[in-house]
Amino acid sequence: MAETLTLRSARFRAEREADWRLLESLVTQAERRGLHRMDFAAARDLAASYRRATTSLAIAREISLDRALLDYLEALTARAYLCVYAPQERLGGLVRRFFTASAPQALRRSWAFILVGFLCMALGGLTGFLLYLENPSWYFVFLPPELAGGRSPDATTSYLRSVIYSNDPDTTGLGAFATFLFSHNTRIAIFVFGLGVFVCLPAIALTFYNGLGLGAMLALHVDRGLGWDMGGWLSIHGVTELSAICIACGGGIQMGAAILFPGDLTRREALQRAGRDAVKLALVAAVMLVVAAILEGFFRQTVQDMTTRYAIGWGIGLLWLAWAMLAGRGRA
C-alpha cells in the first residue's frame, strides 16, 4: 500500500501520530494527577513532546488541508500548553512566600499610601474628639444608635464602665469571633478598599468617617473620666483592627492614585501595576481582621485588667510593625 501514502501531509501524519498519541496520554495523566505527582521521565517527555507538537502544528498549518488533523493538533497543543505552563508552585509554598517576603515588601513599598490611610483615621478621630467636646450632640451624628450599643451621652457613667468590663457568659469565644467577622468594621474595610478605585475619595471619606465615630466615642469616655479604661478596651483588638482598616484604605488610595496620576502609562496599565501591591495590602488587612476577631472573641472577655489589655493590644501592634519593617529583607 505504498501508493496510498504519496500525499505529503498523510506521510507527515503517519510519521508523527505515535508521538501525538503519547502526548495525549501524558496530558490526560497530568490533568488528572497533577504535574508534580508525575515521575521525572513522564514530565520531561510531556515538555519535549509538547514542543514537538507545536512544531507539528506550525508545519501542518502550512502543508496540510486535512481539517481533522488540523483540528486535532490545535486542540492537543492547546491542551498540552495549559498543562506545561501551569503554575508549578504548591499552595503551602505560596502562603509561606506571601508571609515571609511578598507581603512585607509590598507594605514597605506602599508606606506612603498606608501613612495617608492612618492620617485619615487620626484626623477623623481628632475632629470627632474636638467636636464632641464642643457639643455632645455631635455624638448622634457620627454614631448611629445600633452601632453605639446603648453607649451615648445619655448613659450613666456606671453603665459605660459595666460595658467596658462586662463578662457576658452567654457568648462563647467562637460566637463572638464569628459575629466580629461580619461586624461593621469588616464591611468598612471591604468598602474602603473596593471604593478606592473611584479616584480615592470614597476611601478617604469612609476612613475619616470611621475616625469621627471613634473620636466621639473616646471623647465621651474621657469626659466621664473613663479615658484610660476605654483605651484598654479598645486597644486589645482595636490596634490590629483599626490598622487593618487603615491598610485597606492605603490599598484603595493606591489604586485611586493610579487612575488619577497614571504617569507615562495608560490608566489601565497603571491600575494593573498598582493592583499588584494593593491586592497584597487587602490580603494583609484581611489576615489582620481575622487576628482581630480572634483577639475580640477569646481575649477581650477573659482579660479584664486594664494594663494587660494595653500590653496585649500594643504588643501585638508592635509585632505587626516589626513584621512589616523587618521580614523579607535581602530577598529579590
Binding site: 501508493e3 498523510a10 501524519r13 495525549e24 486535512d66 481533522a68 486535532y72 489601565r268
Partner: peptide, 24 residues
Amino acid sequence: LLAGTHVIHLPQPVLLKDLAQEAI
C-alpha cells in the same frame, strides 16, 4: 480586565482517521 485573564473553553482533542490514507 485588571488581572489580565480571560476564560476559555477547554478544547477536546479527537483524532479522526485520515481519509487520504484509505486504499485508493
